[in-house]
Simulated scan of single mutants.
Amino acid sequence: MERSGVNVRARSGYCDVRGSDLLAGKVEGKTLEAIAASPQAGSVPLSLRAPYFYAAPDVARVNLAAEIPGDAINFEKEKGEFHSDVNVLGIAYREDGSVGARFSDTVKLDVPKKEAKEYAKGTFPYQNTFEIAPGKYTLKVVLSAGGESYAKYEMPLVIEPYNGKQFQLSSVALSDKLTPVSELAASLDAALLDEKPPLVVKGSNNGQAMDFKVTPSPTNHFSRDDKVALYVEVYEPALLAKIDDTRVGIVYNVVDRKTNQQVYRSPTMLVNAFAQAGNPVIPVGTLLPLDKIQAGDYRLEVTARDSAGNASPVRTTDFVLN
């Protein structure tokens, strides 16, 4: 099959595909809906980020990343292990109060008894994706931790328009978890079956070309010793042409949020090497020079440009460096 700008995914054999709203109509789902509608805050702290990337014209895919403390999970003993069903609900409300998108899920968590204390010292991470049309929303996410405890998060979600013919830039994801794709064959296949393609970028390891899966951070809190990458997608319609010599690049600034002063500006980074022939989507990943930045609270500003004179809006995300 030959068609520009289209990614084809194939399956070998039959497999059940998980739905995107598993708790719809169930008691657990209705309970979470009531919590989402309530003005009461959650009893468990929840960290959450929701960067988005365009899946098609006027369709964005939100890559939600969240986490709660491991000791917030309430376990029940089952057959020598600790078990918990963690239920999750996310609803994006339009300005008129109608629902623009929703998802719900149950994560079945089993922890061996001897590992329970160590698990409580860490965090419970959660990732999901959902598709949504451009617009202004309020995103509410509720996560039940078992028993009567729950976590709740509310944030504005603004998806900019994209018609497939304009030069555009996605939102910004930051990640301190970059995993070689070669180590994730089984999980990547499962993600594709669920119609939830991961964020993958070209890179290298010890001079050898290698693809990496990028897992967005739910907190954007990092140490100066961490390897942290920014991930964006540039949408360049000129790449649909069979012969095209348009150069595409990104540049980013790091701004101190307290003083509003720029503390670092990157050189222009040409990103054509990340592109695939006939595909207008350019996945871009690059490591941030944290060794050149002092501890503090920052705002990252990213812009894309091409040699035809097109420039994207500035996309921003905040992060904390310890």
Rank of each mutant, 00 (worst) to 15 (best):
R247V: 05
A209Y: 09
V214L: 14
V248M: 08
N205F: 12
I250Q: 10
R257Y: 01
A241E: 13
G203M: 09
N220C: 12
K242F: 01
V232N: 06
V234N: 05
S204D: 08
D245E: 13
L193A: 14
P218M: 13
P197H: 11
V214I: 15
E236S: 11
D244H: 03
K196I: 00
Y252M: 02
V251Q: 15
V201G: 02
E195F: 13
I243L: 09
F212Q: 03
T246R: 08
D226A: 08
P198S: 15
N220G: 08
K258W: 03
D194R: 13
Q208G: 02
V254K: 04
Y252D: 01
D244V: 11
I250P: 04
A238N: 12
F212G: 02
G207R: 14
G207F: 14
S223W: 05
P216K: 11
I250S: 04
V228A: 07
M210L: 15
R247L: 13
Y252K: 02
V232C: 11
G203Y: 10
L239E: 05
A238E: 13
D244N: 15
K258L: 08
P198G: 09
Y231C: 06
G207C: 11
S217H: 07
P197A: 15
R224F: 02
K258I: 03
K202P: 00
P216D: 11
V228C: 10
S204P: 00
L193E: 05
A238M: 05
D225F: 07
R224L: 04
K258H: 09
V214T: 09
V234R: 01
D226Y: 04
D256Y: 02
V248I: 14
Y252W: 10
R247C: 01
V234T: 04
K227Y: 05
V200Y: 06
F222R: 03
D245F: 08
E195D: 14
A209C: 00
I250Y: 04
D226N: 15
P218G: 12
V228P: 05
A209I: 06
L199Q: 03
K213E: 13
V232Q: 11
D211L: 14
Q208A: 14
L240C: 03
